[in-house]
Amino acid sequence: MIRLILIVILNALISNVVLNQFLGICSFLGVSQRINASASLGAAVIFVMTIASAVASALYSLVLHPLGLDFMKMIIFILVIAALVQIVEMFLKKKSPSVYKALGIYLPLITTNCAVLGIAIDNIDKFGYNFIESVFSGFGTAVGYTIAIVLLAGIRSRVVEEDIPRPVRGAPIVMLAAALMSIAFMGFSELQPVIETALKGVGQ
């Protein structure tokens, strides 16, 4: 249990998917104008990423690895994740039209979000997690994404009210804010050795 919590913390804060690994930048910058929209996108990402990690991990350990098809995992993951998002979209449209409406165009965009594919592959290649660990890793990563995007949306809602020098108005100031956030998140890397030692101590 402690191991799973540590995995969540590791993925959410220390190796934050956006600010540390630079995945999912597109939606990070695109959907961070308003806190509400970015929070609901974060919720959608948590949902999709957790399921995608589970499905990808199961598919890998049950089908691909036994058959020696490790090299095909990227293509198959893309296929499965894209279909999964489609299904989630249809489900939301029927069951929760308000959430569907709030997410608008952004839900289909998650299909092509590299962060979802990236974490599904990292779970296997980089960390070597098993099924349960993959699910928590996906969840933790998505929480990290949500934290990052909501923080940026908060900053942006303040920035629009400020008198920004003309050359950096608009997109550039957002990039600067994101860069400073990234540097701030580097502070968490101090925790990394501690958590890694703890992970070894807890064992499997």
Partner: peptide, 14 residues
Amino acid sequence: ITTLVITAIGIVVG
């Protein structure tokens, strides 16, 4: 095997 697996996954997903 690759072809079969991908076809099978495609059919299931579809």
